[in-house]
Nucleic acid binder design. Structure first.
Length: 1108
RNA sequence: AGUCCCGUAGCUCAGGUGGUUAGAGCGCUACACUGAUAAUGUAGAGGUCCCCAGUUCAAGUCUGGGCGGGACUACCA
């Protein structure tokens, strides 16, 4: 006797997991899996930030990555998986500041930048242990021994090189953007800082509707502008009015020209504003009244109207004459899509320097800007009336604030009022962002920043995007595609400390600059600078002509102290900003390999670039997915990835976002410990498409995923039990030599499954792959093949049929273990090893071969019919309350066509056994006992009859039996519709099904009808009783502790019916219960026998003893 | 505010190119099986396919407009 199949008492996934983890560690399975030779499948791991704990959503993204990579490994590819850490950025800085109880102002004062950076470096890797733990626990294979780390000098050097490439191509420039800016703190703020709680507060400001005077004599849709025509525009920031250079209108908004008076000066004026806003500025009762000086509310009259698009192009007089923009054609009305009629006048005052929409729309229309406010938040000297005044009252130092101080907003309003340029002045409460450090309101302010000219790459980016396979597609065309369509230049500058410094040095006048692309280059420049006398030592000095990466630090403040020399001999200092951390992570395809300083061939040859596949959450669309895309396009004119899966969020079971605050966050460690990583992964990938949001419900995880594993486990246990009885050993999958019809069906289904699952994996559709496997295991394998084949496994004879059943089941389970391996790495490995006796992991095995030669659609169709037929018969038995143990004589099935007939014939034995019926009769010739029913095939007839379809359908339903039979035999028939027309129908235009079978119990499902003969002859009744008896005897055997193989002597006592049943079925009973002798007699002869109840108010006395 | 995703049974989800009985699993109810037994199977109940309009002979499916949930980006007179 050979090796036995392992029998496990129960299924405990976490335990399986622990054992398999152990094997992987001992056998170095992951390392071995990298020895595949079919070629490289390139995968990029997005770097998580290790300064926070991993959450359940990380399991999601990583399950996807892992499953795809494992699948490709089984396909024979080498899949390198280099882990990475994102180490820079504001969250790290904030965390350190919080822990050390510092503010930004302390940096460089109470704490040196060196110490600060050291603290960041330490903080950022704090949770690497937890991440390692999660990685192991969830079975994610990624190489964490040799990760890329964004603060590593080699990594930073590659990033510098990339920046230099952009610089050389003219794609890096210094320019303005409008950014949130805190004059009190003297620094720009990131959107992140603006989104901190409490940043937006309600404040009351003086607002004003200003009158912009149109130049007379311009044409609007044929009307001519008059001597005192104005546009009305509302502002909550009157201090921006001196810097106004344009007015924006909504191109599709309807505007009206109103004749009225200025409420303050009573001068007659005509004003333009949006029709929808009229009611906010004019009293309904004063419309068309005669104007009079003493009116409280001015009279008004509509005298013209125009679309915004018609107003565009009009020129107006500047409100103030402090300054005019040097460039561009200012003081025009321009169209802006962002203009709404939700508030104000439907016309928007544009000060390009103080609003990002303003800036954008002005740039689009070639309008210059004015910045009449300085970085302290004060008016510049040009603004003669207010020179040096703070534009916001909150900026005014308390000691400078005299009694009776009026804000500049108020004074501007008063000034305009006097000049007939203010239409309405009022206080208005609204929410306005504040600086979280100074508590003062922020301004939107143009700041110097370095940009990547992504707009220059736009069309190429769009083109390249078309070749990327997005899962789901809509994210690529929608969210990502739209983002690319509306691309603006990428602002790289961040005024921070912990990040990659911009490698750009400039002379003080900005006339000369250099962008450094390597440490070596920087070192050489420093040497030159030392010769010129600007530097005394070189912190990046080369050793033997080489960079010693272990000794250098490219962070601030080291690089800040470096002064280079320009070609003309001037000192050049570093631009003080750091670069956006997104640039760090987008650089990883190159920087992870220290390209081009090392591993040049790896990337140039296409081996390590671009990625065949990446996956992250959908929140990375404008993050990592975008930065990878831009940098790859800029550097290599290539995509960075060929396929990308962007998964949705993991929400709680009620669809709410998980958060620590709400306490609904699921701890991934606990989830894995409780359910096992396999169940968790299976649930996450099969419950919903990964790109839909997942409502994480631990209850359905348990019910759903565990069900699959336990079905599989039970199926394996069944195989193990009987194989061990027969002394069969684990082995590699082996096809049966003479498969039965049933085996061939199983193998055909397996072949179909293999085809479909492989296609799903190839399409990166893990959900579909998992669902197919799950449905197959439950429905086809366990519920049909195993259940109906049980007898073949336990029968005694050691014959071909038994062996075929064993091989078929074994083969099928092996395939399932292989095909499920990418998604459920632990259990599949246990199953695979148990089945095959292999000491090598399933993950080193090759993807199973296709089984196309077994595909047999006819057989699969036949079996489907069998299943439906059984279901129908059981449903009749159920409604008629006839137990399955009671045999019935026959079932009748009217067959409609040759295919159905042949198929049913093929599976009739299976049906008979399953539903306990003696014979199955197929009738192809319709007889009196069968009522046919015709139904129109809408798909075929719809296009032909169009409107008359309803009528035709009705006529078809009313066809007589004779008509239908005629149609059936001749293949055509005529039909008369209500308007007298006659139409000809062909056999295939209709669906014919049989309906009632008079005198029989019938059930119908689609084209299948079964009729069951319920008559019970004495023989059938006796056999029913015999079956009951067998059942009771088996129970007794078990109760008396007999082994399944023990032989018995048996006696049964009971009524005449019982005695008759025993005599008539003597052989059957003996075979079933392994009785060597069977005697029967009346009840009064029963000695030390057990009484049992039988169906039909019968009872019997059973005596059995084991033979020796 | 813009862009994108989602809305089908109590729950979780399927439902190419429009076609007439809208499906599955879980749960529930009832039952069967008892040599897979802490396993297995069957049946039944359960639906305003989010709402409204349109296109069409025909709409869960296509179009438009809403509503609700979620995400990302932005934050404005």
């Amino acid at each position: 006797m050979g090796v036995r199949f392992k029998e496990h008492s129960g299924l405990h996934l976490p335990k399986v997991q622990a054992e398999i983890q152990e094997s992987w560690a001992q056998e170095q399975t992951f390392q071995k899996s990298l020895n595949k030779t079919r070629g490289d499948f390139t995968f990029f791991e997005g770097p998580p930030s290790a300064n926070g704990m991993p959450g359940i959503h990380h399991v999601m993204a990583r399950a996807i990555k892992d499953a795809v990579c494992r699948y490709k490994t089984m396909q024979g590819f080498r899949v390198l998986r280099k882990a990475g850490w994102d180490t820079h950025g504001l969250p790290v800085e904030l965390q350190v500041e919080k822990e050390l109880n510092l503010t930004k102002e302390d940096i460089g004062k109470t704490i040196s930048i060196e110490d600060y950076n050291a603290a960041c470096r330490k903080a950022v890797m704090r949770f690497t242990g937890e991440w390692q733990k999660l990685t192991d626990a969830m079975g994610y294979w990624v190489d964490m021994q040799d990760p890329y780390i964004t603060y590593d000098p080699k990594y930073m050097e590659s990033v510098w090189w990339i920046l230099q490439q952009f610089y050389k191509k003219g794609l890096l420039y210094k320019g303005y953007t409008i950014q949130p800016y805190s004059p009190a703190a003297g620094t720009g703020l990131s959107s992140h800082e603006l989104n901190q709680p409490g940043a937006y507060r309600n404040v009351k400001d003086t607002t004003l509707v200003a009158q912009f005077k149109l130049m007379p004599g311009q044409s609007i849709d044929g009307m001519e502008t008059g001597e005192s025509d104005f546009c009305l525009a509302w502002t909550t920031t009157p201090w921006t009015l001196p810097s106004n250079t344009a007015l924006a209108v909504g191109p599709n908004i309807q505007y009206v020209l109103v004749e009225t008076q200025n409420p303050y000066t009573r001068e007659a004026i005509r004003v333009w504003l949006a029709e929808e806003r009229l009611a906010n500025y004019f009293a309904a009762e004063m419309e068309n009244q005669e104007p009079a000086v003493d009116q409280k509310k001015p009279a008004w009259k509509r005298i013209g109207q125009a679309k915004g698009s018609a107003l565009a192009g009009l020129r107006y007089e500047p409100l103030f004459n402090y300054a005019r923009p040097e460039q561009g054609d200012a003081y025009r009305v321009i169209p802006g899509d962002f203009v709404t009629t939700a508030d104000g006048t439907g016309m928007v005052h544009i000060a390009p320097s103080f609003g990002s929409d303003d800036f954008k729309v002005a740039a689009q229309h070639g309008i210059g800007s004015l910045t009449l406010v300085d970085e302290q938040g004060r008016f510049t000297p040009e603004v003669t009336d207010f020179a040096g005044e703070y534009v916001k009252e909150s900026y005014v130092p308390t000691d400078l604030k005299k009694d009776g101080y009026e804000s500049v907003d108020v004074r501007i309003a008063v000034l305009l009022k006097q000049r007939n340029r203010a239409f309405k002045i009022e206080k208005y409460e609204h929410s306005y962002p504040h600086c979280w450090r100074t508590d003062k309101p922020i301004l939107y302010f143009p700041l110097d920043s370095w940009f990547v000219r992504t707009t220059a790459l736009k069309s190429r980016l769009l083109d390249l995007n078309k070749s990327i396979r997005w899962k789901p597609e809509s994210t690529g065309t929608g969210r990502f595609g739209n983002w690319l369509e509306n691309l603006i230049d990428w602002n790289l500058s961040r005024s921070r400390f912990w990040g990659i410094p911009l490698p750009i040095w400039r002379s003080d006048d900005g006339s000369e600059e250099i962008c450094i692309g390597s440490v070596e280059e920087l070192s050489q420049e420093i040497e030159r600078s030392m010769q010129a006398g600007w530097m005394t030592e070189n912190p990046y000095a080369l050793h033997n002509g080489k960079v010693d990466y272990s000794k250098i630090d490219l962070h601030r403040p080291v690089v800040d102290q470096i002064v280079l020399v320009s070609p003309s001999g001037k000192p050049m200092r570093r631009e003080s900003d750091l670069i956006d951390v997104w640039f760090d992570s987008g650089s990883m395809p190159f920087a992870q390999w220290h390209y081009p300083f090392e591993n040049k061939e790896k990337i140039d040859s296409g081996q390590a670039f671009p990625a065949d596949f990446i996956a992250e959450g959908v929140d990375q669309t404008r993050g990592w997915f975008f930065t990878l895309h831009v940098i790859a396009a800029g550097i290599m004119d290539s995509v960075a990835y060929k396929t990308v899966i962007s998964n949705g969020l993991v929400q709680d079971k009620n669809g709410m976002k998980m958060s620590k605050r709400l306490g609904n966050a699921v701890d991934p460690f606990q989830a894995i410990e409780q359910h096992g990583a396999d169940a968790l992964r299976w649930y996450m990938l099969t419950n919903a498409s990964p790109w839909d949001d997942l409502k994480f419900n631990p209850a359905s995880l348990d019910e759903g995923a565990r069900r699959f594993f336990s079905t599989l486990h039970n199926t394996y246990s069944f195989l193990a039990l009987y194989s061990n009885v027969d002394g069969l050993s684990p082995r590699l999958p082996h096809l049966p030599e003479q498969p039965s019809e049933f085996d061939r069906w199983m193998l055909s289904r397996l072949g179909s499954l293999h085809r479909d699952v492989t296609a799903a994996y190839e399409d990166f559709d893990l959900t579909q792959a998992g669902r197919l496997l799950q449905a197959f295991t439950d429905t086809d394998l366990s519920n049909w093949y195993v259940r109906l084949s049980r007898r073949r496994f336990w029968k005694e004879a050691d014959d071909q049929d038994k062996q075929s059943a064993f091989y078929t089941l074994h083969y099928t389970l092996c395939y399932v273990s292989l095909m499920m391996a990418p998604v459920a790495p632990f259990y599949s490995d246990r199953l695979y090893r148990d089945l095959t006796g292999s000491s090598s992991s399933v993950h080193l095995a090759n993807w199973p071969q296709e089984l196309s030669r077994f595909l047999n659609p006819d057989l699969e169709y036949a079996m489907e019919l069998a299943q439906t037929t059984c279901s129908l018969i059981l449903s009749i038995r159920k409604s008629e309350k006839i137990r399955v143990r009671q045999p019935l004589q026959r079932v009748l099935i009217p067959v409609l066509d040759q295919r159905q007939s042949a198929a049913l014939d093929r599976v009739s034995d299976i049906i008979k056994a399953e539903v306990n019926v003696k014979s199955l009769e197929l009738h192809s010739q319709p007889g009196d006992w069968m009522v046919l029913k015709a139904k129109a095939d809408f798909k075929k007839l719809g296009p032909r009859f169009g409107k008359d379809m309803k009528e035709v359908a009705l006529a078809v339903e009313n066809l007589s039996q004779a008509d239908i039979q005629k149609l059936n035999s001749s293949g055509r028939c005529n039909l008369t519709v209500s308007d007298g027309r006659t139409i000809e129908l062909l056999r295939e235009d209709l669906e014919i099904r049989s309906q009632d079978v008079p005198g029989w119990q019938v059930a119908t499902n689609g084209p299948l009808t079964v009729a069951l003969d319920l008559q019970l002859s004495p023989e059938l009744l006796a056999e029913g009783t015999a079956r009951d008896l067998v059942n009771r005897i088996q129970n007794l055997r078990k109760d008396s502790g007999l082994d399944v193989g023990d032989r018995i002597r048996l006696a049964i006592y009971g009524s005449e019916h019982v005695q008759h049943a025993v005599q008539a079925n003597n052989h059957y009973i003996c075979t079933e219960v392994l009785a060597l002798t069977l005697t029967t007699g009346p009840e009064n002869e029963a000695v030390s026998a057990t009484e049992v109840e039988l169906e039909g108010d019968l009872r019997a006395f059973i005596y059995l003893e084991k033979t020796v």
